[in-house]
Design a protein around this nucleic acid. Sequence first.
DNA 1: CTGTTAGCGCTTTCAC
DNA 2: GTGAAAGCGCTAACAG
Lengths: 350, 350
Amino acid sequence: MKQDAPAALTLRDIASQAGVSLATVDRVLHNRPGVRPDTVRRVKEAIERNSFQPHVAAAELARGRARRFAFVMPSGPNLFMQQIQSYLGEMTAWLSARRLAVEMIATDVFDASVLASSLEALVGTYDGIAVVALDHPGVRAAINDLVEGGAKVVTLVSDVPSSRRHHYVGIDNIAAGRTAGALVGRLVGPRSDLSSGKVAIVAGSQGLRDHAERIFGFNQVMASEFVELSVLPVLEGRDEDERSWQLLARLLAKHPDIVGLYNVGAGTQGVARALMESGRDKQIVFVGHDVTVLTRKLLLQGVMDAAISQNPGHEARAAVRVLLALARGEPILSEQEKIRIDIVMRDNLP
Amino acid sequence: MKQDAPAALTLRDIASQAGVSLATVDRVLHNRPGVRPDTVRRVKEAIERNSFQPHVAAAELARGRARRFAFVMPSGPNLFMQQIQSYLGEMTAWLSARRLAVEMIATDVFDASVLASSLEALVGTYDGIAVVALDHPGVRAAINDLVEGGAKVVTLVSDVPSSRRHHYVGIDNIAAGRTAGALVGRLVGPRSDLSSGKVAIVAGSQGLRDHAERIFGFNQVMASEFVELSVLPVLEGRDEDERSWQLLARLLAKHPDIVGLYNVGAGTQGVARALMESGRDKQIVFVGHDVTVLTRKLLLQGVMDAAISQNPGHEARAAVRVLLALARGEPILSEQEKIRIDIVMRDNLP
DNA sequence: CTGTTAGCGCTTTCAC
DNA sequence: GTGAAAGCGCTAACAG
């Protein structure tokens, strides 16, 4: 509407300013070979001088190739992963309006060899792959093979830093663990006058990088800021409700002086059940991860005190956008794609 | 790369399937008049049947009109507003690649008549306007005039719900206040055994809708969940450091039993100074808003215990995206544009 | 009411 | 090395 902005420049204008043709400007713009260094300079100057930005829509249209991305995610009933998938589902219109195809591939991410071979099978099939990865030599090799094959690879939720993946979309899990520790410590507060206050940790497996990092961060804070609280050995519930329940119920029975509980992964149903059955759910400060139908209910009931959360919708969209930017050779808006560590309590439930 | 996805359909394909021309499909697609109902049906069926999505890039290119947006924001030294502006600045490349122009207009948002006339001056000049607005009849009228004039209007940070603005980009301030209350209450914890625990509130002005809503939410939680804490009358510091400092210093001197402090708006420097000068900064739980260079430092020092934050980068981008979607008549991805209430403590500082 | 047509700004052959 | 020209899929003006 109204006062039209000064008509933006086009490749054409740059071409004439630099005294070359459209095609040459295009070559310079994309660092393609076959242009004399001197010409390159002239063109670059013209681009610079006008701070020219090519029109993305025109580029996308002309390029006109559809792209295929794959999301490799854990099979099984993990609510958080299901949320990511559901948010991806909500994006279908957005995706197809951009001629992007996203496929879901379920696999056993707890088993490194299964995951590795699932990944190997994708070499040469997709433009980009997002994977919730176990940090394991075989997996690392598979990721590197994908990259070798020309695909863009993004790790999601759990990173494999030593691989050649292009990007990690997820939170800093050490900081997340520290945050959980600070919350447990601060919320327990002077309750620990008793001075024998103990804190329990339930994790899926310490072999999972994200879980291990969270525990590391948690212990860091406990050791430095809440010395009056003693942390009990980690229970490994394999993210299963039944097993988590058994282990925690036993621990609670054994230690009547537990004042805090950190649930590192899934298996929340089991953890909550053990806590409630012990009748001590109002006394024990309970901090866990992610906002799901279940943790939402527990927060509202006051059984859970806080959830450390990574916005699954944001993660899904960020992964797609990053893959797209990588595939197109565009810059990544790191501030936008960074996943924050959210603290969610009853009153700021999303 | 590799295995090309099945070539997507185009308007042309739909046209031939429905036995009409390109133009007719385009008309139906955009609900333009001048098509026989029966034809509309046939075309819609073809679209539905193929779940056809027009290629956004092609549409954008063909439409080819540049758009102008204005951001009307407070003049003055408010750090949070400066952050929003700086994030807008970081988007320039993104914006110009889409042929969008964004202009900043500074005005005194605390003075309703000044704000109203600043807004009136924009009628007919922009396609979209984002405004940090005071909720006042004159402002409301100005917003309605803008809408009347065909512009899309988005309120930012502070809403004017009774106006005809198309969208609000910002947090639920009542929930933010509740969250602040819950944090103060929980972090004070059994310290209030003393039972005479008092809580101080410093706000900019209760006339600002966002401040008033936050206070409302804060008091709600205090009254229902932390009855043992008594809330002192609100101090109005006009978001100024000097004035906030004076008022709070006096209050602290008068009440030696203050255990909690909620800073609703800006003026943080003054609030922190009063608190530190009292020598009680470690005993008093201090919760404020927004992560700035200042609050970041205070959190790290342990003077401030938590900041309730709305991600300024996200707000800036969301405002632009919403204006763009409104201008183009595209749907708004509400999940993506929703601004969350972030709780930021030392360990999850972004 | 409906169809034809000329672009939008870039990418990509294919010639020179 | 460089340029000319044919589209990419949609929109909008103009004919019919």
